[in-house]
Nucleic acid binder design. Structure first.
Lengths: 210, 210
DNA sequence: TAGATTGTTAATCGATTAACAATC
DNA sequence: TAGATTGTTAATCGATTAACAATC
């Protein structure tokens, strides 16, 4: 049964859809037009059942003889996770991490592009880094409105995290990807993803020492 | 009841312990020696119950009048997640992301230190970056053994991910923190944490567009 | 005593996996 | 028909939250 309401797809399924798509592009480049659930599963370290269940949830069906059609699946995933009109992203904080993300993303996703960088250090602003124009943070309001930016990636220093987040919220941003080590508390209508490098390294260290 | 067997603490609890500890250090710096579960919860965007349950699982008890003792809790968390002797970490890939992590970590954790960087570009190796000596990847075996490094952070290009991971496994590393966008398949006795920036940004974009 | 808090079990929620029918 | 595969429900597992007793 097709699940028309993509809003209520499990969060983990959404994450995997993003990863399936990337692998599917690779598969297509190898001129392979169909793929079995166990092949995708092996590539992603999952069980074939989980792959089939994810595809069931988005209403993509395959054939027992040939598996799933790669192009069709790429298209469907795009219809689900991409926005039709495209979404624009800003980066706050142009240190090593900010620049790493900038150059990593540069031109990768059609529907999701980083279009502005911000920093409070004038040495780093009013110029173009990795193809992306960079501004002083006192231009947040102006640039966010003009470019219609809906998402910001926070890579600022911990001390500045709360304040900078607030500036972007006031400017109208709807989602924050928080790479500072400071947990943020945001209004309910703002979406938040947080990731903390220290935490994941400490967790791994805990697992390794056992 | 004290859970002596820290091995089977829930993974999510381990992650939160790392974050509690960081906040507790801040609290201590403000000369606050006790903290209530609702205070910690507010700082981390959790419910007080969840905080209390985590602390129950590690066997730390508080007082109804004063809450939890900050120093005692820091010490206990350290006993659980740190290794007594300390653990050493290498970074593979000295691009923007690798360097961001290096400078971020530099001297932050006593029991967990990044002691070597590796790259295949000789321009970036045989020198010291952010206080950390950097070597050509043909020295992996030698350096990992000499320094007794048990964890590697992978920030290499996607094409190189599998090959480089293998080199480190062969050299005896026990855990991999994978920041390449390539999912890795590893032997059961090797611990793995993966994080993919593109996936989290795409997930956030999906949530925002709804 | 009333109010605030900790500590703990049971219930719920979310995600994965087992089991198996249906199809090629 | 036998074997491999997809599709789907039910069972299980893991994590969070609700409920409440105990204590200061």
């Amino acid at each position: 049964m097709t699940n028309k309401n993509h809003k209520d797809l499990p969060g983990k399924t959404i994450e995997r859809l993003s990863q399936y798509r990337r692998l599917l592009y690779n598969i297509l480049q190898q001129n392979k037009h169909n793929v079995y659930s166990h092949e995708l599963a092996a590539l992603m370290n999952l069980t074939p059942v989980q792959v089939r269940r994810d595809l069931m949830l988005i209403g993509h069906s395959g054939s027992q003889s040939k598996g799933y059609n790669v192009k069709g699946l790429i298209t469907l995933i795009g219809r689900i996770i991409d926005s039709e009109t495209g979404q624009k992203v800003a980066i706050a904080g142009l240190g090593n991490l900010g620049r790493a993300i900038m150059s990593y993303f540069s031109g990768k996703r059609e529907k999701l592009s980083i279009v502005a960088g911000f920093d409070n250090d004038t040495q780093k602003t009013e110029r173009i880094i990795a193809g992306i124009p960079c501004y002083h943070i006192n231009k947040i309001q102006e640039v966010i409105a003009k470019e219609n930016i809906s998402i910001v990636i926070l890579t600022v220093a911990p001390e500045a995290a709360h304040e900078v987040a607030r500036l972007f919220l006031d400017a109208g941003v709807k989602g924050i990807l928080n790479y500072t080590s400071v947990p943020l508390t945001l209004p309910d209508n703002i979406h938040l993803e947080e990731y903390d490098i220290v935490t994941s390294l400490e967790k791994l260290a805990f697992l390794v020492k056992e």
